[in-house]
């Protein structure tokens, strides 16, 4: 049962990532693309955690934590850049 649940969940996250890619292509503006990238990194974290559950190992945890931190900093920096034209004030 668990294997089935993992397969279904991975499939759903895959579809979610493809939909994100579609929105990334559609745009229409820069903030939309930043929002999509933000969603994409959270979804890829979901993917990595699912893989960790599949392997029953906690090694994948570090990767997910790193993506979470770098993704947040990246989104914040991009927003700052759009707001002020500068990352460091």
């Amino acid at each position: 049962m668990l294997t089935w649940a993992i397969t279904i969940a991975t499939g759903m996250v895959c579809i979610a990532l493809l939909l994100n890619l579609w929105r990334l292509y559609l745009g229409p503006d820069v903030p939309d693309r930043i929002l999509t990238l933000d969603t994409m990194y959270i979804n890829s974290m979901a993917m990595i955690i699912l893989f960790g559950i599949f392997l029953k190992s906690s090694l994948m945890f570090e990767a997910a934590l790193l993506i979470a931190m770098l993704g947040f900093v990246g989104t914040a920096a991009l927003c700052k850049y759009l707001l002020r034209g500068d990352i460091i004030e």
Binding site: I8, A9, M12, A16, L19, T39, L50
Partner: peptide
């Protein structure tokens, strides 16, 4: 196992719904 499976499918469902909303909703 049942509990984990239910949590996994609900979680993935929410992730999917978030992305569907990203496509469907009209403005930023």
């Amino acid at each position: 196992e049942l509990f984990v499976s239910i949590l996994l499918v609900t979680g993935a469902g929410f992730v999917l719904i978030g992305s569907v909303g990203l496509i469907r909703l009209p403005d930023f």
